[in-house]
Design a protein around this nucleic acid. Structure first.
Lengths: 128, 128
DNA sequence: AATTCACGTTACTATATTGTCACATTAATT
DNA sequence: AATTAATGTGACAATATAGTAACGTGAATT
């Protein structure tokens, strides 16, 4: 059997974790417009306490999705698209070929070829 | 101030949550190859107990990332790419224009225009 | 020097997630 | 009918996550 194993060797796990929360995605959407200082971000999420937003910001920073630069007594937070790009290239991309072009048609056909059961009858498999 | 608000109105929140775990992403990768019955999936994750894998499978099913069809005494689990496609279209896509083509150049320039500070000096803003 | 404002943190609580063991169910096989 | 194999579940424990209130820090301003 092909083993999956525990491979967070990807390096992108903190990014996925960061993107899992809707508030954090909203913050990234917010920063997509232009860089913002911390207070602006905090006030843009009025349903959460200051510290709540700060912790979300920390998660985003640790995933390198947000870069923070000091500017006097303020901090300017800006979006970093690189991790999003990596997720797209390493993960979404390979799946994309399943819904674009010919491959999707082929796969649909292959799945219909396994009607009632007997797994291993007419499906391609890893050698093993 | 532009308010972000709590908007899981997206409908894709379970999908993001499901994708946040590396084991679940590995299972999806595994299913990208071809459909598998439950035991095959369980055995492909040898570092987890049966029930552990089952629960991951449940999460994937609830996010509609995996579809399960009965086949006698077995269940055939197959990948559904639609939610991944939606995430790409609704979220990754809009960010993609930040790293592809001209828009990236423009944004880089805009960020360099704010050298030492004074946020709000030369940056485009929401009206407020 | 005192005040103000932007920013961050310590301490704590509640809930969700991730995982295990042992058991139940149901279809195919002998 | 009894057995085996594939699948699913009830009860529980450990850890991670998400949140609040109140307090500390340090640069700008008066």
């Amino acid at each position: 059997m092909t083993e999956i194993a525990a491979r967070p060797a990807d390096g992108l796990d903190p990014v996925w974790k960061a993107l899992a929360d809707p508030t954090r995605r909203a913050i990234l959407d917010f920063l997509r417009d232009c860089p913002r200082n911390t207070t602006e971000i905090v006030e843009s999420v009025p349903h959460l306490s200051r510290f709540g937003v700060m912790k979300h910001l920390d998660v985003l920073r640790q995933a390198h999705l947000v870069h923070t630069r000091e500017a006097g007594r303020q901090r300017v937070n800006s979006l970093n698209v690189v991790p999003i790009r990596q997720i797209y290239e390493r993960w979404v991309g390979p799946f994309q070929e399943l819904w674009s072009g010919e491959l999707l048609r082929i796969k649909d056909e292959a799945e219909k070829k396994v009607p009632g059961g007997k797994p291993g009858t007419s499906r391609r498999r890893k050698k093993h």
